[in-house]
């Protein structure tokens, strides 16, 4: 019973990984791309880890997969946050359809939005 469930979770994880990659191509600027890739790739890889744990049980490999999943959940948002703050301070402009930029107005002296052309 556990084995098909594990494979199912692994395949769902791979599906979300692929969707995250498609988002990386389709979205217009670095901030929206980070949104898509962070969410989908974190849950996708976490799903693969949980699937491996269900397939292997409390063996060395299963426990390692579980610990890797927990660390992934803790570290991946922090990495995305650092990338996003870095690109804001580097001066990367936001897509022209952006409706509001309070961070730029308050911290960087003016909204960091691309001009309409």
């Amino acid at each position: 019973m556990i084995s098909p469930l594990g494979w199912l979770i692994i395949w769902i994880g791979i599906l979300f990984d692929i969707l995250g990659t498609v988002g990386l191509i389709r979205f217009p600027d670095v901030y929206n791309r980070l949104q898509a890739s962070t969410k989908c790739v974190t849950l996708g890889t976490f799903g693969i880890m949980i699937g491996i744990f269900l397939l292997k049980g409390f063996s060395p490999m299963g426990i390692k997969a579980l610990i890797c999943g927990a660390f992934l959940l803790l570290t991946s948002p922090v990495a995305a946050h650092a990338l996003m703050r870095g690109s804001l301070h580097f001066g990367q402009k936001m897509w022209k359809g952006t409706v509001i930029d309070q961070y730029g107005v308050e911290k960087l002296g003016g909204a960091q939005i691309e001009k309409e052309d």
Binding site: F16, L19, G20, V22, G23, R26, F27, P28, D29, Y31, N32, Q35, A36, K39, C40, L43, M94, W95, G97, T98, V99, I100, D101, Q102, Y103, G104, E106
Partner: peptide, 22 residues
């Protein structure tokens, strides 16, 4: 969150209205 992103990625009109709020 993932189903939401999947919807925005696969929708042909790409329904996004991004912005930074406080």
């Amino acid at each position: 969150a993932n189903i939401d992103v999947a919807y925005r990625v696969l929708h042909p009109g790409r329904p996004i209205k991004p912005g930074i709020v406080k």
